[in-house]
Design a protein around this nucleic acid. Structure first.
Lengths: 150, 150
DNA sequence: CCTTGACTTCGAGCACGCTCAAAGATGTAC
DNA sequence: GTACATCTTTGAGCGTGCTCGAAGTCAAGG
């Protein structure tokens, strides 16, 4: 396919997609919606991503992976383009998202605990089935009612 | 509105929605797609939810809140209807979801750390702005490149 | 009797975040 | 020069999970 002369320095969209755990489609989409500034091009018109692009895209990926809405990311990207004077607003956005992350972690941890209880309960039920004993849905009293609610 | 004779025992859909942090729309939707068995009715045809329904819906809510797909919840609900013989399959589903939760927590914690770094960095930048010093984007070397990538 | 309000069903619509298809350009290899 | 791969743009389409609107029922209150 492509030899050495069309490199024009930088990552191709495919390279970048692999590096950031996104698809090329997504990278173009992010550019379209303003999450990343127009990427520089090789002479043939193909995108060539820089290291700075890589870092920024990696950051975007982290934010999306933790459920920051595209809207918020757009707002952040916009402020970033405006320079240092927007530091406060940008920090606010990050602080809000950090809080959102904290509350997600809390919910996930609660569910994790619940599941651990329920899984233990299932193991007990399976044990009863194996030894042919009576299978009652609620074998033990667990901290949370939910462990035996299904 | 409703006096005493139409109670017919059980929570109304509104009560239930509030109790479980969902909307009445969502409760009907869950019933439609088989996440909950047809709910018993008052004589006027209105739904009346039992305590058992409440526990099950609360569980469903926990699973959805931690991003279990509706599909998986449907599968689980289906097995639940089939009784104890499906214990193993159900446990597998819960174990899979618990693993998914663990990996979400991991990702969220990483992002949380990253954000803490970035926020600290923004505070430094704001400090420089206040004292009128030179504002360089990267004031400190932080563990993660990303802390200064935007 | 008429209004009010909470419910019912049903199907359509929506927000989000991609994801893809079509048509075309360009560069490499044979 | 022909095949092939990789990219380009544009606009449309899709999967998920609700969310809503329309039209109707039913009981209570005035």
């Amino acid at each position: 396919m492509y030899g050495d002369c069309m490199r024009d320095s930088g990552y191709t969209i495919q390279d970048m997609a692999e590096r950031c755990g996104m698809t090329a489609h997504t990278l173009r989409y992010y550019e379209r919606v303003g999450l990343i500034q127009p990427v520089s091009r090789a002479r043939n018109g193909h995108r060539r991503y820089s290291e700075a692009d890589a870092a920024w895209l990696h950051f975007l990926h982290c934010m999306r992976a933790t459920n920051m809405p595209i809207r918020a990311m757009q707002r952040y990207a916009e402020l970033r383009e405006l320079g240092d004077s927007t530091s406060l607003d940008r920090r606010k956005i990050l602080e809000d998202h950090r809080a959102a992350i904290a509350s997600q972690i809390k919910e996930l941890e609660q569910a994790h605990t619940l599941l651990t209880h329920k899984i233990a309960n299932y193991k007990k039920i399976e044990q009863r089935i194996r030894i042919g004993g009576p299978v009652e849905e609620e074998i033990e009293e667990v901290a949370c009612d939910l462990a035996t609610a299904g």
